[in-house]
C-alpha cells in the first residue's frame, strides 16, 4: 500500500531511473577500526511510504542512518538519494537536497528559543545576505516575516501549543521531541529520518506521535524510522527492515515480519532445539580458531623480522 505522491501517478521511469525510488542503499559497509557496524546492507525507500528499521541493540541501525544523512563516510557501498550518489556529500548539502533527520538523543539548540530552533531549519531555503540583516533592508524584513510564519506554522502542525519564546530546556521531554520534528520539517524534506522518535515518551505521547507521523506522510513526505517500540512499528509501518549484525535479515510487511522465524531468533536468540543453526555457529567458531592460530604463528615470526 505504497502511497504515491509528489505528483507522480505511476512509477515513472525516466533515463533508466525509477522516479518512484527516493533512496537506494546498496552494499553499504561501515567499519570502525576492527568493528564492522554495517556489513553489506541494502535497502530502498519509495516515495510516500513509511519504512521502519528495527533490530536488536548494536545491530547497526543508527550507523546506517548516519551514513545516509552524511555524518559517516561509508567504508564502501553506494547510497543514492533522488538518483544522485551522496556517499561523499556534506550533511548540510544532503539536507538541502531534501532529506531531514532527527537524533536519537534529542539535539536541540539549548541556548536558543523554541521558535529560533525551528527557524534554523529554514537556513538553506532562504536567501538572505548578512548585509541585509546589517542594514535591515525591506528584503530582510520580508524574509524574516516568511521565516516567522513558516516556523510558527510547523510548530502548530506538530501540535505544539505552549509559549514558543521560551528556551527548549524548559520544555518537557515529549514536547522537545515535537519541536525537533518541527525543526526537521522546516528544512522542506522529501524524506524524513526519525531516530527512535518514541524513546522516553509515555503512552499518550506515543499515540500523538503515531498520529503526527501519519499527518506528515499525508503531506507526501516519506518517513524512515528506527524504533524499538514494536507496537508503534507494527502500527504505522508499511514495510519493515530487520537488521542484525549490520545486515538486513528480513524485509516485508508487518505481518510477514511478525511471523518470520529469523526475526524471532534475532530478538529472542536461537533455541537449543534448532540444530541446524547451532551447528552452523560451531563451524564458524572453528574457523575463527583456525584464524587465531594463524595469527599467533605470524606474531611468533615477527620478532625475527624486526630484529634487524
Amino acid at each position: 500500500m505504497t502511497h504515491i505522491a509528489h505528483g507522480t501517478t505511476t512509477a515513472q521511469v525516466l533515463d533508466g531511473v525509477d522516479r518512484n525510488i527516493l533512496l537506494s542503499v546498496e552494499n553499504l559497509v561501515m567499519r570502525f577500526g576492527g568493528v564492522t557496524a554495517v556489513d553489506g546492507m541494502n535497502m530502498t525507500v519509495e516515495r510516500g511510504e513509511i519504512l521502519s528499521v528495527i533490530g536488536p541493540n548494536g545491530a547497526g541501525k543508527t550507523s546506517v542512518f548516519n551514513c545516509i544523512s552524511g555524518f559517516y563516510r561509508p567504508t564502501s557501498g553506494s547510497i543514492k538519494f533522488l538518483a544522485e550518489e551522496i556517499t561523499k556529500t556534506r550533511p548540510s548539502e544532503i539536507t538541502k537536497m531534501g532529506m531531514a533527520r532527527t537524533f536519537q538523543n534529542l539535539r536541540l539548540f539549548k541556548d536558543m528559543s523554541i521558535l529560533d530552533n525551528v527557524k534554523t531549519g529554514l537556513h538553506s531555503r532562504i536567501k538572505q545576505h548578512w548585509y541585509h540583516a546589517f542594514l535591515h533592508t525591506p528584503s530582510f524584513k520580508k524574509t524574516e516575516h516568511f521565516i516567522d510564519e513558516t516556523a510558527r506554522g510547523w510548530l502548530e502542525f506538530v501540535g505544539f501549543s505552549g509559549d514558543e519564546r521560551v528556551y527548549v530546556t524548559q520544555l518537557p521531554y515529549g514536547e522537545q521531541r515535537r519541536v525537533e520534528i518541527a525543526r526537521a520539517l522546516c528544512t522542506s524534506p522529501q524524506l524524513l529520518l526519525l531516530d527512535e522518535p518514541a524513546a522516553g515518551l509515555n503512552h499518550a505521547e506515543k499515540r500523538a506521535l503515531i498520529e503526527l507521523i501519519r499527518k506528515i506522510q499525508a503531506l507526501g513526505v516519506s518517513i524512515v524510522l528506527i524504533e524499538h517500540d514494536m507496537g508503534l512499528v507494527m502500527d504505522i509501518s508499511e514495510r519493515i527492515i530487520v537488521l542484525n549484525y549490520g545486515k538486513e535479515i528480513a524485509v516485508g510487511t508487518p505481518e510477514e515480519i511478525r511471523s518470520n522465524p529469523l526475526v524471532i531468533e534475532a530478538y529472542l536468540g536461537a533455541e537449543e532445539g534448532q540444530a541446524a543453526d547451532a551447528t552452523g555457529a560451531d563451524v564458524e567458531l572453528l574457523a575463527d580458531e583456525a584464524e587465531i592460530d594463524e595469527a599467533l604463528e605470524e606474531i611468533e615470526a615477527e620478532p625475527e623480522k624486526r630484529g634487524h
Binding site: S69, F71, R90, P91, S92, T95, A100, R101, F103, R107, L108, F109, K110, D111, M112, D116, K119, T120, G121, L122, H123, S124, I126, Q128, W130, H132, A133, F140, T143, E144, I147, R183, A184, C186, T187
Partner: peptide, 20 residues
C-alpha cells in the same frame, strides 16, 4: 538574522546544525 541564528546553532550543537 539568518546568519546569527546559524552562528548560535553551530555554537550549541555542530552536528545538529549541519543536519539543519
Amino acid at each position: 538574522g539568518k546568519l546569527g541564528r546559524a552562528w548560535k546553532a553551530v555554537r550549541d550543537d555542530e552536528d545538529a546544525a549541519e543536519a539543519m
